[in-house]
Amino acid sequence: MITGQFTYFAPTTIEEAIQLLDEHGFEAKILAGGQSLIPAMRFRLSQPGVIIDINGIDGLSGIREEDGNLVIGALTRESMLEGSHLVQSRYPLLADAATVIADPVVRNMATVGGNIAHADPANDHPAVMLAYNAEVTAVGPNGARTIAIDDFFVDFFENAMEDNEILTEIRIPTPASNSGGAYIKLERKVGDYAISAVAVQLTMNGDTCIAARIALTNVNPVPMRAENAERALVGMTVTDDVIETVGEEAGAECDPSPDLRGSIDYKRDITRVLTKRAINLAIERAH
C-alpha cells in the first residue's frame, strides 16, 4: 500500500498555495490533515500528480469568536475542538461531533476544513455545519468569497469551490439565547463512519421551537438538511407527538444506500430514532 508518485510542494503562504493550484489545476490536491486523502492514495484510488501541502502555512489554524461568529481556521485539528473551552461551553453540537470523528489519534491530524471540503456525506462536519447554518470562506486567485453552507455541497464528493480555490475558514453564527444543539451518531465501533447521525440546532421560546435546522450524516449521497423535518418542528409547541413526526419526516426524506452498515429500512428507522433523541437533547440544552 504505497502511494503513486507525485510532485510535492510545501507553500508557506496562502497566495503561494493558490498560485500552485492555479498552475496545476485538477492534477493537484491540497494536503491538509491527509487522514482521508493519504489512505485513498495508498489504495491508489486517488493518484494526484501534485500535492500541495498546506500544513506549513501560518494563520490557517485556530478557533476564535469574532463579530457574532465562531471562526474556525480550516487547518484546525479536530482535537483542538475537543480542547477548546469556547467550543465545549458554547457550541455543544460541535463539541458532540468533535468526540466522535474517527479516533483520538486521527483527530490530532485530521482538520475541520478537510472534513468539510472533502464533501463526503459520511463525514461528520458537513451535517454539523448545515445545522449551524455556517459559512465557508474560499480563497482563490481573485480573492476571498463566502459560500453559504447550504450551497456548498453540490454533489457526491463535490463541493462548490473552484479547482483553484482553498477553503480557509468556517464561520458559525453564535447561537441566539435559548438555543441548543446536539449531534448523535450511531457507529458500529469507535472510529467508524456513521450508520446514521443527526445534527440538530434549535432555538426555543418556552415550549415552542422558533427556529431549527436538522442535518443528516451518511444517509444521503450528498450531505443534507432534513427540511421536511425542520418544517414539522419550527413554530410548534414541542410535544412527544411532534418530535415523533419530526423523526418520521427525517427518516422518510433521507436517501440512504444499503451497505455493510445496514439496509435502507434500518437506516431510515434509526435516522428517525436518532432525530428524536437529538431534538430532545438539544431542547434540554436550550433551556
Binding site: 450511531l186 458500529r188 450508520i195 445496514g262 439496509s263 434500518y266 428507522d269 434509526i270
Partner: peptide, 11 residues
C-alpha cells in the same frame, strides 16, 4: 449480532 439484526427482530 449486529444492531440491525436486533432491530429487525424487535420490529
Amino acid at each position: 449480532i449486529t444492531p440491525e439484526k436486533v432491530w429487525k427482530a424487535l420490529r
